[in-house]
């Protein structure tokens, strides 16, 4: 376990760069991580997904899978892959300050 400073805040991260404590997450951190993931500036459509993931994780205790996001948050698979191209499962979770989803679907 290491710490790093993202958007001016020192947070705990694991070896893959995921925040280990969702409570340390801020919107500024999300914006910074999104840049690192090559997404540029986050749009309202990105934020809708991120906010869904944050809420869902807070109630279930784990990061939602892609299938759960598309089935529950009202965003299509195509849109989700367009918003977070090249590996949405990891990107969404990392930017949302959550760990990698454990589910397989």
């Amino acid at each position: 376990m290491t710490t790093r400073t993202i958007a001016g805040k020192t947070v705990q991260v694991n070896e893959e760069g995921f925040l280990t404590d969702p409570a340390e997450w801020t919107k500024e951190i999300a914006a910074e991580l999104a840049k690192e993931e090559g997404l540029g500036v986050l749009t309202p459509a990105h934020w809708a997904v991120i906010e869904f993931c944050r809420k869902d994780a807070a109630s279930t205790g784990k990061a939602p899978t892609l299938r759960r996001i598309t089935a529950t948050a009202g965003v299509s698979t195509k849109d989700l892959f367009a918003l977070f191209p090249k590996g949405p499962a990891k990107k969404v979770a990392r930017i949302s300050g959550l760990t990698k989803p454990e589910g397989c679907v």
């Binding site: 892609l66 299938r67 892959f81 191209p85 090249k86 590996g87 949405p88 499962a89 990891k90 397989c104 679907v105």
Partner: peptide, 12 residues
């Protein structure tokens, strides 16, 4: 299906 979906989710 399961492995393919996991692969896409990881950018493969």
């Amino acid at each position: 299906l399961i492995m393919g979906w996991a692969a896409l989710g990881n950018g493969i």
